[in-house]
Amino acid sequence: MAKENLLEIRDLHTSFFTDHGVVRAVNGVDLDVPEGRIVGLVGESGCGKSMTARSVMGLIKSPGRIESGSIKLDGRELVGLSDRELRSVCGDDVSMIFQEPMTSLNPVLKVGRQVEEVLLVHHKASTKEEAKRLTVDMFERVGIPEAEKRMSAYPHELSGGLRQRVMIAMAMVCKPRLLIADEPTTALDVTIEAQILRLMKQLCKEHHMGILIITHNLGVVAEICDDVYVMYAGRIVENAPVFELFDHKRHPYTEGLMNAIPKIGGNPEFLSTIPGVVPNLLHVGDGCTFAGRCAHASDRCRAEMPALYEVAEHHTCRCFLAEREGQ
């Protein structure tokens, strides 16, 4: 397990300075992606998981910015790099695929050209012909049929699954060390989802790369992740290897998430939900951000933010219940 950490995020704070106040979208996140492993970052919409990923890529839009913390890729600090330095890393050493293959490809450019472009920008191909050849290779690797012909297709001429394969080809073509996938299968139907996940798993193994997959779908996590981080309201609330997490979940929020998965044979009339909604990040108090929705919340929870307690090897949990159990 003592593998080199490809991505090491420490105490990351990314905030949005809006007219109504400061929104702390990412509030002190620590996260590791070791080489050759697939790490899942799970949470509800708006919990800050996408912002964590976008922070790595330098894609935080104004009025947001990284306030403090460290993001290390292969030991190299990314926070504070100039635009130019960060650009040489993005698309090359670390690349990202996005949720919506429909809107993430440029509609007026041929897909082949959009992939070739990455190679040319990062000097992985010196001529257009070479870039084209490498792109066709990559298209074949990610399972795009008639790769040569598809090169000159426009995004609207391809199905959602094919488009996401193009996105993956685009992200993989420079053989990055780290791939960040932000809800890569959310917009796809389940059969395509399974294919795409299998493809990512296979690429991870072949290239010995790290993958950070962001999802709200615990099914996806169970399918391909090695390690899982559960995020809530800008903080990591629980972190464990995937089997440990599913078998010994400690945080009430994680438990709520798992209970919310509909089960075959369960009561079809009743879908379990977590009561309440994600708190407005503009107004967070001192206490645990989940206290308002938690069945076990005590006065202490409402007054004080629990730390991340180690409850087992490689398993941490941000809950006072876990603190007691841990002792």
């Binding site: 650009r87 690349s95 809107t103 993430s104 440029n106 990455v118 920008v121 685009m170």
Partner: peptide
């Protein structure tokens, strides 16, 4: 979204605007 993709590829701001956004 595709502008984010272009940025994530590591393109310069000028190519993002001229090659991806302008058209």
């Amino acid at each position: 979204d595709y502008i984010d993709t272009a940025k994530a590829k590591g393109l310069t701001k000028a190519s993002v605007i001229l090659k991806h956004a302008l058209k």
